[in-house]
Write a protein that binds this DNA or RNA. Structure first.
Length: 804
DNA sequence: CAGTGAGCGAGCTTCCGCTTGACTT
């Protein structure tokens, strides 16, 4: 048995370190935290100085008992969890749970997984830092108190199962606030003047810095320019440079992978995890931009051999964010001489991105020559400005240039090249335009830009960015989706060949892809929290408590004092809110019905937001109000009276076909026709309110023809059972159930009995199965069922109801 | 991809951070 047991947090890290240390060391991993507060409400005893009740969760039991056994056998246990608040606490929990002894336990830390760093750490052991542990306890207890006192308030005052917390509630608030800014925003239009001089290769653009809000002024300018001549008044050339960005942290990797590869935040982390486990990159959950000396030297060798000396500049980066804990290196390739990796396409692309960013971070700056030409107009006092940029030395941009075409299509016209010009030179105008341009509202958050904002505010940690984004979507506070824009007109005046031409063009505005939108519930919960718990959802709350955690970590403050000071007023607020706050439904009056004069209002109900026409029926015989659910994209706070009334026009009967009604309605996936319990989606461009009977019949028949084309096979035993060609290959349609055909089965050769068996094996109760909550239950049921009799019962039960 | 929406009541939900698998269509 090895004399030494060394424990780190991650198994991949353990493997690497084991290779550095030889056979005197057994290196194991704790898989993160091994203990947590018990799930129940008595986890923290407030009366007894916030004493905590911890437990080892079920999925950590096995690893804890293994570590316990190894620790007993070892002479020395080395606690090598990360050097930050959480890492120190992990070491402490290990110490307590494994029953370690002070004399035979050593705490070591390193910021990078390199052999010299590990050896140096082993030469410099220390004791567990209890101040740091206390700071973590304060963090943990505060989050539990906030989360588990606030959430129940929402259950009572808004809706069951909702949640609130220090991090998620601010994330939602950011999105709600931004949506309101966008709604409030008034776009202002102004005319922008642009001129093109010269022809062909010599052509270049110049712009006027002034904007005209009135068309008359823009037109006057163009009219004045009709007889004008143009001359270069001045030329100014000066050098400019651009420096590379720091190597990736979790947050910048998520942003860049989103922009350049279109990855969601969680996809980025999944792919990065694979690369990390394969030993291709360093740890992917980090807030540090630091590179180890080993890495800097490896990058240097790579840059000099591939591009030459002049491309290398040693750079050390400093983290800007105050909340960073820097327990790891920046994200970088483990080996800089590995330019590509095996694996699927996304792994290759993400690795390439990481490699380029890390290499570029040690390269020379790019140098440019920027030229500004001021162009005089004989008939006006204003000058036009043309900008040109010439690259003198590519520097770090060399690394990006290689694959620029497919990953970077943002071309800034402003900085294209200028032809050779001289002061006093007379220019020939080929065209001048005055284009009406609208100011743009603030941008909606996408996943990655929300992470960026949270990081700036110091809220959340690298390991929680992706889960936080999922939580606020799972709770229904926020949806990620595409939305169509609206068309709007803009005017363009063009001066060409001495004539001014006026036209109106249209553009699409406000279209969004993969953006985060608040839901009504998100808005109502945010308003509620802002009203009653402003301190918690304040954007500076985390930064403020972090400051106090730091004081605790430095031994300047007692953690229980800090928590007490926070908790006492907070708890009073909770009690008070429970007493005084009304139920929050987001109710808003839209006015009265134009014909009947009945009251029209919107609010959140049991099944989501809806419109109500007429008052509640209070007595027997009262007329009942009408209801209609809001559609995707509609919100209580922005819906208009007209849109609300539209909701009552559908579903609508549009005629008869084959002795059955046809109705048209709008569902989750857009407008559709319902006929004989089947759905037929309406082709784009047809207004569901205008669909005629013959049109509907045509749509139904067209869908049938298409389905017939997809048909592969039917069965004599039951003509309703079909094998069809779907988007992802052939599948079986069995009594409204879509059944996947297992790999290796030829669909044409399947017999009816085989098909039936496949259908019976497909769970029917998992509706339209997304990876839902059914999964953990099935897993839990599996273990005991595997033993004997009950195992046979389950499938028999399932098959029975399907027979009829 | 329906239409639904009052109030009652049992028993459930919930936080943030640190780690990976083991599930599902």
């Amino acid at each position: 048995m090895a004399k030494n047991l060394l424990i780190v947090e991650s198994p991949a890290k353990a493997k690497t370190i084991e290779g550095y240390l030889g056979k005197d060391f057994t290196v194991k991993s704790s898989y993160g935290h091994i203990r947590d507060l018990v799930k129940s409400d008595d986890a923290i005893n407030i009366a007894s100085n916030f004493e905590q009740k911890y437990e080892v969760p079920a999925d950590k039991k096995a690893i804890v008992s293994e570590l316990k056994k190894l620790a007993k056998e070892a002479e020395t246990v080395w606690l090598a969890s990360d050097e930050d608040r959480e890492g120190e606490a992990i070491s402490w929990h290990l110490f307590e749970t494994l029953g370690l002894k002070d004399a035979t336990t050593k705490r070591i830390v390193f910021h990078e997984i390199t052999k010299p760093a590990i050896l140096k750490a082993i030469d410099n052991p220390r004791k567990i830092d209890y101040n740091l542990v206390n700071a973590q306890q304060a963090r943990r207890v505060l989050d539990r108190l906030v989360g588990f006192e606030l959430s129940p308030v929402l259950w009572k005052k808004v809706k069951p199962s909702l949640s609130a917390g220090r991090v998620q509630s601010v994330a939602v608030r950011l999105i709600v606030d931004r949506e309101r800014e966008i709604n409030k925003f008034n776009a202002e239009a102004a005319f922008r003047i642009a001129a093109t001089f010269g022809k062909g290769r010599e052509a270049f653009k110049a712009e006027l810095s002034e904007r005209y809000s009135k068309q008359d002024d823009a037109e006057k300018f163009l009219t004045d320019c009709v007889p004008a001549t143009y001359k270069v008044n001045s030329l100014d050339t000066k050098p400019a440079k651009r420096s590379p960005a720091a190597p990736f942290t979790t947050s910048t990797l998520q942003q860049e992978a989103s922009r350049k590869l279109g990855f969601s935040v969680s996809r980025t982390m999944q792919v990065a995890q694979k690369l990390y486990e394969a030993g291709k990159i360093t740890y992917m959950r980090t807030d540090s931009v630091n590179l180890s000396d080993t890495a800097i030297n490896a990058a240097k060798a790579q840059i000099i051999s591939a591009y030459g000396d002049q491309y290398y500049t040693m750079r050390k980066y400093k983290t800007k964010s105050a909340s960073a804990q820097e327990a790891h290196e920046a994200i970088r390739p483990t080996y800089f001489d590995v330019h590509t990796v095996d694996g699927d396409n996304s792994e290759k692309r993400l690795y390439e991105l990481i490699w380029k960013r890390a290499i570029a971070s040690q390269m020379s700056e790019a140098q440019f020559e920027k030229t500004t030409a001021k162009i005089g107009i004989y008939t006006r006092k204003e000058e036009l400005t043309a900008n040109g940029e010439v690259m003198k030395f590519d520097g770090f941009l060399k690394v990006y240039l290689e694959s620029r075409d497919d990953e970077d299509n943002e071309q800034d016209d402003d900085n294209s090249m200028l032809p050779p010009l001289a002061v006093g030179q007379v220019l020939t105008l080929s065209e001048m335009t005055a284009t009406e341009r609208y100011s743009r509202p603030p941008a909606r958050y996408a996943e990655a830009s929300l992470v960026k904002k949270l990081e700036e505010l110091g809220i959340g940690r690298p390991s929680t960015y992706a889960p936080t984004i999922s939580t606020i979507q799972n709770r229904g506070y926020v949806v990620k989706e595409d939305r169509d824009g609206r068309t709007r007109d803009f005017r363009v005046l063009t001066l060409k060949g001495g004539n001014i031409n006026k036209e109106t063009r249209t553009e699409n505005t406000g279209a969004e892809r993969n953006k985060l939108f608040p839901t009504d519930i998100g808005a109502v919960v945010t308003d509620f929290l802002v009203q009653y718990f402003n301190g918690i959802v304040d954007f500076h709350f985390t930064a403020d408590v972090e400051e106090q955690f730091d004081k605790i970590a430095q031994g300047l403050e007692e953690w229980t004092d800090m928590i007490r000071k926070f908790y006492q007023p907070f708890h009073i607020e909770v009690e008070n809110t429970l007493k005084v706050a009304d139920r929050a439904t987001g109710e808003r009056d839209l006015g009265v019905h134009p014909e009947s004069g009945k009251k029209i209002s919107v609010r959140i109900g049991r099944y989501g937001p809806f419109v109500q026409v007429g008052d509640n029926a209070t007595e027997e015989g009262d007329e009942k109000p009408l209801y209609a659910s809001l559609r995707a994209g509609q919100m209580i706070e922005t819906i208009t009276l007209e849109d609300a009334l539209e909701l009552f026009k559908l579903p609508k009967k549009i005629g008869f076909f084959e002795e059955k009604d046809m109705t048209v309605a709008i569902g989750k996936f857009g407008p559709y026709i319902r006929h004989n319990s089947a759905f037929y989606s309406l082709p784009k461009g047809i207004d569901p309110l205008d669909v005629t009977e013959p049109q509907a019949i045509e749509i139904i028949e067209a869908k049938r023809v298409k389905d017939a084309e997809r048909l592969i096979k039917t069965f004599d035993e039951n003509p309703e059972v079909k094998i069809l060609n779907g988007r992802w290959g052939p599948y079986i349609e069995f009594e409204k159930l879509n059944v996947k055909i297992p790999k290796g089965k030829e669909p044409l050769e399947l017999t009816f009995d085989e098909v039936k068996a496949l259908a019976d094996a497909t769970p029917k109760d998992v509706k339209k199965g997304r990876f839902g909550k059914a999964a953990p239950k099935a897993a839990a049921a599996k273990a005991p069922a595997a033993k004997k009799a009950p195992a046979k019962k389950a499938p028999a039960k399932k098959a029975a109801p399907k027979k009829k």
